[in-house]
């Protein structure tokens, strides 16, 4: 049986490192000898606006580089989540950085759970990140699951604020159920080769961030989550 392809779209504010995370994910899958395609959403607005990245990975040949519905939607900011709504279907899993976003308003139409890492992120988020916090937009469509991961919070408290996207990458990678953590590490190391040469500590820092995300995702997956049907009107 061929491994079915997964479609992933990641979104964030320009500078949050969305493109790097998506690129590394695709690269890692490629290194495993599987099919992979990454394309950034580029355009005149690319500076300072919302930045989207499209990734397709798996065992089947890949058709068009962009797609309508994503299996996995990863949002690092509220604005980007709004942009990502068009890619949601009943099959979609949403992962978002809950330290930057207020928890979703779960309307009757919206299905899912918020799954948090064991630490309660909200208090920290309130205290440190109020100005960066954005409201979670209403999700108009039915989706499969929603997961919140306080990546920025975790990065700031445990590692370094700059590696929030790497925590998200770790979690995203695990959710794909296609790629090994080791491959992501290798791709990440390759990508950061020059920087690591200058500052060897960076390697460990990024590996830790990856692992944090990867493990958090593992815990989130284990938590039983409701399916759409329960919430149907």
């Amino acid at each position: 049986m061929t491994l079915r392809n997964k479609r992933i779209v990641m979104g964030g504010e320009g500078g949050q490192g969305v493109q790097a995370a998506a690129d590394i994910l695709a690269q890692a899958v490629f290194e495993e000898g599987k099919e992979a395609l990454y394309i950034p959403n580029f355009g005149i607005e690319q500076r300072g606006g919302v930045s989207l990245a499209f990734v397709q990975i798996g065992g089947e040949p890949i058709g068009s580089p962009k797609f309508k519905y994503a299996h996995l939607i990863v949002a690092l900011s509220g604005r980007s989540l709004e942009r990502l709504q068009g890619y949601m279907s009943e099959e979609s899993i949403i992962l978002y950085d809950s330290s930057l976003l207020a928890p979703p308003q779960v309307s009757d139409e919206v299905i899912g759970w918020q799954c948090y890492d064991t630490i309660a992120p909200e208090a920290f988020a309130e205290r440190r990140l109020t100005d960066r916090r954005q409201s979670f937009p209403e999700i108009p469509r039915k989706v499969k699951y929603i997961f919140g991961l306080p990546a920025s919070e975790m990065a700031q408290n445990k590692l370094h604020p700059r590696v929030a996207n790497i925590i998200i990458l770790g979690a995203t990678a695990r959710f794909t159920e296609i790629v090994q953590l080791e491959s992501i590490k290798k791709a990440l190391e390759e990508r950061l080769a020059n920087k690591i040469k200058r500052d060897p500590a960076l390697k460990d820092l990024n590996y830790k961030a990856l692992e944090l995300g990867w493990e958090a995702a593992g815990r989130m997956i284990k938590i039983p989550v409701s399916t759409g049907k329960i919430f149907k009107r």
């Binding site: 695709a26 992979a36 395609l37 990454y38 394309i39 950034p40 580029f42 068009s64 962009k66």
Partner: peptide
């Protein structure tokens, strides 16, 4: 085209 220019694949 722009897609082919900007996408990454094997």
């Amino acid at each position: 085209d722009g897609y082919q220019a900007k996408m990454r694949e094997p």
